[in-house]
Design a protein around this nucleic acid. Structure first.
Lengths: 219, 219
DNA sequence: CGAATAACAGAACGAACATTCCAAATAAAA
DNA sequence: TTTTATTTGGAATGTTCGTTCTGTTATTCG
């Protein structure tokens, strides 16, 4: 009976079981930390230091939870890292999709995109750069799973850019002769370049001038 | 006398000393490995795996020299890494300077530059990317000395690009109204972006189309 | 209270880490 | 041969790594 209840609890994550004769309550102690909040902290640490340079001890110190809780909740280092990166990817693609689509003019949209990237880079005293770019340079090709994730990441971005450009082209904001596939690809390349260069070049005006020049590609 | 000779040997690296009365020969065993050749191997390993992920044992295995010889010749891990990166930087800037200046037409020059980068990226089964870009994302800002080196690296590139563009502008290949500082900066940003993206996108045609589109900035 | 279990602190594990040291082998020229 | 110094294999050192385990405390509800 006891074993059956344990199995049942694992399977359905129930809180209360009523039988015809009596009622069993199995109410364990609730989680005292927010899983996503702690995951965000892990994300920021991996983002800043990279996968290899971040030790479990670093994580234990910065996450504020116990070593055992870390392993119980997120699995080993690699799993925690992957979960961190997934969180980043989700937030990242959501934010950029929203940003672009809140500008009906394509050039405005990309201006805001690049500008936001620059502003965030310059405001970040940790100079973390972009988590996806960092992972590309650190982990490809030594980690095949990461390569897959980054490949689908690139596809997601280029498709997003492409569809956005296409909408603009239909509205007459871009010449019909433009090859939007190549343009989307180049804009993604420039985006990546900005995220690298802004770790070195902290001059806002210079970065901004580059952006303005890059936008001349869209017309 | 003995001490003086040792000092003199260190200072001038001499082989033979003749005095009025007699001749002293101090000819130790010569180095059996080529310092730069081994340093090149170290460079390739750091380049592929990054600083943190490369252990001394990895280096001992791949360099083909003894652990003690490694420390005696290059110092500790950090010094060996810095020397590796210096070698890369020197070769890199020399090669690119030569490549650009062997094309009198600016657009041709940049086309060859980007094309060479893409070809080398696609031919490299290790997908090492660019050592400088990799170091930027891995080590900035956690290593201040590396930041300095990368800052001067960026200046060297942007100046090289700028001077090359200026020469072309004088020859009438670029409109007088073009802001060459921003253009040089953007071309460097695109170069960085290409070196990141080519780790993920292995489609030569797509990369090439992006390059051609990017070159439309120069006119 | 008792039962259940999350979260904890911290010890323990073996492996890998960077680095140093030592004795033996090697090479060059007197 | 002897002298000098490089290079070597490999042991040794002490630290840090990722991971697991043990025992304690805290919290939930009947």
């Amino acid at each position: 009976m006891r074993q059956y209840l344990e199995w049942l609890f694992q399977e359905v994550n129930f809180v209360e079981v009523r039988f015809s004769t009596s009622t069993f309550y199995l109410m364990p102690r609730v989680k005292s930390f927010d899983e996503e909040e702690v995951l965000t902290k892990a994300m920021n640490l991996f983002w800043k230091q990279g996968y290899s340079a971040t030790s479990i001890q670093d994580l234990v110190t910065h996450l504020g939870i116990n070593r055992a809780s870390l392993y119980d909740t997120y699995g080993d280092k690699e799993q925690l890292f992957k979960k961190s990166f997934e969180l980043y990817r989700r937030k990242s693609i959501e934010g950029i999709s929203h940003l672009l689509n809140s500008h009906s003019n394509v050039k405005d949209g990309f201006y805001e995109l690049y500008n936001k990237a620059i502003n965030e880079a310059l405001l970040d005293n940790d100079r973390k750069g972009c988590f996806a770019v960092n992972n590309t340079t650190e982990l490809v090709p030594n980690d095949n799973n990461c390569l897959e994730i980054l490949t689908s990441n690139r596809n997601a971005f280029e498709n997003l850019f492409f569809e956005y450009l296409k909408k603009g082209q239909k509205k007459g904001q871009i010449k019909k002769s433009k090859d939007l596939k190549s343009l989307a690809s180049l804009l993604f390349t420039i985006y990546n370049g900005m995220l690298v260069v802004s770790k070195i070049n902290r001059n806002k005006k210079e970065l901004n001038d580059s952006v303005k020049l890059a936008l001349s590609l869209i017309e």
